[in-house]
Design a protein around this nucleic acid. Structure first.
Lengths: 159, 159
DNA sequence: TAGCATTTGCACGCTCCTTGCGTGTCGTGC
DNA sequence: GCACGACACGCAAGGAGCGTGCAAATGCTA
């Protein structure tokens, strides 16, 4: 298991909030020297605790007006069919996230689209006709209460 | 409306993949000088097209073994009740994302937890007992097919 | 307490960032 | 057709930040 101490947690937490912090700024926040922050950060990257850095973009400002959750039930649950479906999902750029789930549906997708026409296209012309898919049910996002993409690292502090 | 040209799209796309690219590396990728990349990047940040930079962490490596989608139906749909629920959700760190939706449920939450006990706690001791909530249904993530958090900027290239 | 391994802060050479400046290009109005 | 203003561009330079080497400090084991 990778060991992550209190300093590492502070660093991870800070970088979760601002991924472009310089080592000097990091140093101020976690009470360590810049060089040590640099070293620790490199280790965390090497150990794949930090898997990357991403710019977060304003989807609305860029013209993506529609976000939808799409629940999918497969036609059959054979490995072949599942593989076909995974391959399909991988090729659709509009699908940001895809998970297999317990419960009613087999999969849930989160898709980002320009407008309702885009969603309609995706559902009716791509997903529904695909041989691997039996059932599709989509829910459109009306309001975004929270979208942090941050892990609750505080919970690890006392453990 | 904010104008975003082909260069900007390239920059956004590159920074979506690697948010710590230097302006020199950016310059190589988009065929522009480093100074221009710097200027454009600053403008995109100023205009809130880029809303921030985040380090992406390996949830499993940090001991977050359970991700769940939780569908919520409110007890009543009064503004007061909705506000109570929003406030509740805002205070729960384990809830990464929260959306109000069309369809069966009023809201869907995406929660990240250490283990099933954590999920049980959240559902049975926090959400269920809350006065604003009538119905809770949770689905556990079995497998993550895709989790890119990237906007499909390619779709904007020809528009 | 002695000894070893790890972690820390500091110094320095090097890279990179950003701002000012001059140039080129495009569109507009006279 | 030409002059002018508004941008967007690349270049250069001063300044900031990065990461490695090194010695001191800390912590753990025997």
């Amino acid at each position: 298991m990778i060991s992550v101490d209190a300093f590492d947690l502070k660093i991870l937490s800070a970088l979760q909030d601002d991924g472009r912090l310089t080592n000097q700024e990091l140093a101020d926040r976690v009470q360590l020297s810049p060089s040590q922050c640099s070293r620790r950060r490199m280790r965390l990257e090497q150990d794949n605790v930090i898997t990357g850095y991403r710019a977060e973009l304003a989807s609305d400002a860029l013209g993506f007006g529609v976000v939808a959750f799409i629940q999918i039930t497969l036609a059959t649950h054979s490995p072949d069919n599942a593989e076909r479906f995974r391959s399909l999902v991988g090729r659709i750029d509009a699908v940001q996230e895809a998970y297999s789930l317990t419960g009613d549906a087999d999969y849930v997708l989160k898709a980002v689209l320009r407008d309702l026409k885009g969603l309609s296209d995706l559902v009716n012309n791509v997903l529904m006709p695909h041989q691997s898919v039996a059932h599709v049910r989509s829910s459109i996002v009306l309001d975004r209460l929270k979208d942090s993409a941050r892990l609750p690292l505080k919970q690890l502090a006392n453990g």
